[in-house]
C-alpha cells in the first residue's frame, strides 16, 4: 500500500526539482503543480502493479506536460513591445513551456515506454484542439461546450487510464476535473465579468447577438442559470464517479469529499448571494 501524504509530497518535490531552471525562475513564476491532478494520478497508479520507480517516472512526466500546458496559458495577447521587462517575461514563458515539454518527453524516453509517449502526446493534441474550439467560440451546443472543457482538463489522466484499461478512472478524472474547471470559470466570471464558459453559453443561447452588445437582464439570467445547471450536472457526475471508484486510501477518499463539499458550498453561497 502506498502512503499518499508522503508520496505526494515526494512527487511534488521531484517535479519541482526536475522543472527547476535557475534563469527561468529568476524572471517567470515557479511552475504550478496542480495537486488535484497529482492526487488523481496517484489514485490511478495506486491500483496498478507497476514498480515504484517506473510509476514515479510516469507521474512526473504527466505533471511536466501539465505544467508545460499551464505555462503556455500564461502567454497573453497584450502588446508588450514598449516594456522590456514584460517582453522578456513573455519570451521566457514561451520557452519555459517548450522546455517542460521537452523534459516530459525526455523522462518517458529514458523509461523507454513508447506506448506511453503515444498516449500522452495524443492527449496533448486533443487538449490543444479543444482549447482552440473553446477560445474561438466555435461550439454550438452545451454538451459540446462541456465536452471541450472536459477534454482540456482531463485528457492527460484519461489517456493514461485508458492505456491501463481503467474506465472508472477515465470517468472519475473527467467528472472531477470538469467540476473544478466550471467552478473556476464561475469564480472568474464573478471577479472579472469574463469567462470562457459564460461567453460560450451566451453565444450558444444568443448566437445572433454580437459579443459587444449588452444582454438584457432576462437574457443574462438565462446565461447564468445555464451555467449553474452545468455545475449541478457536474456535481451529480462526480457523486456517481465517487461511488464507482474503489479508493483504497482513506486520505484520497477524504480529499475527494472535501473537493466536492467545497464546490457545493461555493455553489450554495453563490445562490444565497443571488
Amino acid at each position: 500500500m502506498l502512503n499518499i501524504i508522503n508520496d505526494v509530497k515526494e512527487l511534488r518535490q521531484l517535479i519541482k526539482t526536475k522543472a527547476h531552471h535557475s534563469y527561468l525562475q529568476k524572471y517567470i513564476e515557479e511552475p504550478f503543480v496542480d495537486e488535484d491532478k497529482l492526487l488523481l494520478l496517484w489514485g490511478l497508479f495506486n491500483e496498478l502493479e507497476i514498480p515504484d520507480n517506473e510509476r514515479n517516472h510516469y507521474m512526473l512526466s504527466t505533471m511536466l506536460v501539465q505544467i508545460a500546458l499551464d505555462t503556455h496559458e500564461k502567454v497573453s495577447n497584450t502588446n508588450v513591445m514598449g516594456s522590456p521587462g514584460l517582453l522578456k517575461n513573455r519570451q521566457l514563458t514561451v520557452l519555459a513551456g517548450d522546455y517542460y515539454s521537452g523534459l516530459y518527453y525526455q523522462v518517458l524516453a529514458e523509461v523507454g515506454n513508447i506506448n506511453m509517449i503515444r498516449a500522452l502526446s495524443s492527449a496533448v493534441k486533443k487538449i490543444n484542439d479543444h482549447k482552440i474550439l473553446l477560445y474561438q467560440y466555435t461550439l454550438n451546443n452545451i454538451p459540446d461546450l462541456l465536452n471541450s472543457f472536459r477534454a482540456v482538463e482531463a485528457s492527460l489522466i484519461y489517456k493514461i487510464a485508458e492505456y491501463y484499461q481503467k474506465p472508472v478512472w477515465m470517468d472519475g478524472a473527467e467528472n472531477l476535473l470538469l467540476l473544478k474547471r466550471l467552478h473556476r470559470e464561475k469564480e472568474q466570471y464573478r471577479e472579472t465579468g469574463q469567462s470562457l464558459l459564460v461567453e460560450g453559453i451566451r453565444l450558444i443561447l444568443f448566437p445572433h447577438i454580437a459579443m459587444e452588445v449588452e444582454l438584457s437582464k432576462e437574457q443574462l439570467l438565462q446565461v447564468e442559470n445555464t451555467m449553474d445547471s452545468c455545475i449541478e450536472y457536474a456535481i451529480q457526475s462526480v457523486k456517481q464517479s465517487k461511488g464507482e471508484l474503489s479508493l483504497a486510501n482513506v486520505e484520497l477518499h477524504q480529499r475527494m469529499d472535501d473537493m466536492l463539499s467545497f464546490t457545493e458550498l461555493k455553489v450554495n453561497s453563490y445562490v444565497k448571494e443571488g
Binding site: 508545460a68 502567454v75 513551456g97 517548450d98 515539454s101 496533448v124 482549447k131 482552440i132
Partner: peptide
Amino acid sequence: MYTGDYIFA
C-alpha cells in the same frame, strides 16, 4: 501557442 503545442504533440 496552441498551434505550436498541437504540432509538437
